Computed example of a mutant assay.
Amino acid sequence: MRLEGTPSQTVGPYLSIGLPWDDGPFVVPEGTEGAVWIRGGVYDGAGNPVPDAMIETWQADPDGGFDHPDDPRGKPATPFRGFGRCPTDEQGQYRILTLLPGIVPDASGSGQARHIDVSVFARGLLNRVVTRIYFEDQDNADDAVLASVPEERRDTLLAKKDGTGYRFDVRLQGEGETVFFSV
């Protein structure tokens, strides 16, 4: 007997059932010292908001460690899960409350710039797309991943400082398309 793989399908109408949860956007609890909001929108190729997308984030804690059994540095001392999930609203907007991530060593032992890994799920996508959020007011000069992106496109990976944190918009296609990575 030969089994065939299930064909890929775009994200369907049941994406929102069971995936989001009430505290999904809160990587840290409200009121955590040093917490910042990362807010933004998800837009299609025509610049229209995508009201049924999902943003997932994964990041290091402020000391550069991960709340994961494989991280030899151990569990963070603060309440910090490192993972966030937020569906977009009717205007395509999302929000994540977190702490700025620390510097994580790369494979060569050098430090990666502070960043947050982001997965985007949306209608019309067969697979998630993956990008990174870097911060415009942090030192990004020595990050090998960011340096691998053509200079004229790096700004699509930079979150802009605003009143209560940062703004990071995701453009799925077209002018100003966000840089996505193959993982």
Rank of each mutant, 00 (worst) to 15 (best):
L125T: 09
G92S: 04
Y94H: 01
R95H: 03
M1E: 13
G47W: 03
E175W: 07
D23L: 03
A141Q: 09
V11L: 15
F135K: 05
R2W: 05
P105L: 03
W37L: 09
Y134A: 08
F181Y: 15
Q112A: 06
G31K: 07
L15H: 10
R132W: 07
R171M: 04
V130I: 09
N127G: 07
G111R: 00
V179D: 13
L146H: 06
G174T: 11
E56R: 15
A122T: 09
E151C: 03
V42S: 02
W37H: 11
P51A: 07
A60G: 12
T57S: 04
G34I: 06
L97F: 01
Y94K: 01
N127Q: 09
F66H: 14
T32Q: 12
I17F: 03
G174V: 11
F121I: 14
C86V: 03
V179N: 12
A113Y: 00
V183M: 13
Q173E: 07
V50W: 05
D162Q: 14
Y166L: 01
L172S: 14
T156K: 12
A147E: 07
C86P: 08
I55H: 00
A159W: 05
T57I: 02
A122H: 08
L158D: 01
S148D: 04
V120A: 10
D139P: 15
V118C: 01
I116D: 01
T78L: 15
D155K: 10
K160M: 05
R154E: 07
H68M: 10
D63Y: 15
L19N: 13
G82L: 12
R132T: 14
